[in-house]
Nucleic acid binder design. Structure first.
Lengths: 146, 146
DNA sequence: CTCATTTCAGTGTTACTGACATAC
DNA sequence: CGTATGTCAGTATCACTGAAATGA
């Protein structure tokens, strides 16, 4: 029996199935991140730094969809763990420049592996064709209102 | 631009799309519930009481997939709002029997309407055929490991 | 003056853990 | 005895709000 399966009106509610699937993926991701002494925000921020290079905290927040106040806390944690470096921007003294350290790069690689493994585990029951279907349908939902 | 779209490695990650879709649905649901002075747990518990009749808190927790300690808090709130009645079980004095009140029944109907409306809003971009596809794929995912 | 940036403090929901007393 | 129940207290992530200080 799954989460909420004791409530009949939810068994055929697509939004509920989406939430359950997301919950499972989220739990696996959170566990995987926790095993690597991280959490979701860390992965997002490290990935954004890797792809776009050194950035201000506000830029990071916009790219990752994380609130600026939450970026502060996450960068605090990662700076304390030497995964990123925070230094004032000389050209705009309101800003900090956040840079990925070498340890941060290594950490991101580990987290990428974690995410890849979970991706496979979650999609395991679907054929390649079904995965593409799912991808297409979800993209439609997300593009519409997400 | 959507949540996390600034991070390229996530754009084609199905688990991420699932999470984004779920996030949207969850936000809409939370807003709808809040507008009715409720929250997700209340809906689940009321629906379980409606479908299965008076139950102990532990039963409710198992049916809804809610932890016992969280059931306590939710029932406290709903009992204070006269949506449910809590009385000791005469046959097993460890238990409480939770009963849906008439006001609780009315409240559940309102919440059912809220959920139905959101269901439609989320699935709007999909044809009937696509909705069935999505339902099938999600069910496969959830049945597998959820 | 207006706006952007960083930071701090706090809220709310969901999810979970540990402990305790009580009763089966 | 072990197990189930209800309760309380606390933690964690994510998401968000409001306000303050600083600087462009």
């Amino acid at each position: 029996m799954h989460r909420g399966d004791g409530v009949a009106r939810l068994r055929n509610a697509p939004t509920w199935l989406i939430k359950m699937a997301a919950e499972r993926a989220g739990r696996l991701l959170a566990d995987g991140f926790a095993a690597a002494d991280s959490r979701g925000y860390h992965y997002l921020l490290l990935a954004a730094l890797d792809e776009h290079g050194p950035s201000s905290q506000a830029e990071l927040g916009r790219r990752c969809g994380i609130d600026r106040s939450d970026v502060v806390a996450a960068i605090n944690e990662m700076a304390a763990a030497n995964l990123v470096e925070r230094r004032p921007d000389e050209n705009d003294r309101r800003r900090n420049v956040i840079t990925l350290t070498r340890a941060g790069s290594r950490h991101l690689k580990r987290l990428d592996d974690v995410v890849g493994g979970i991706q496979d585990a979650v999609l395991e029951p679907l054929s390649d064709r079904e995965r593409q279907q799912l991808l297409r349908l979800l993209a439609k939902l997300v593009d519409h209102g997400g």
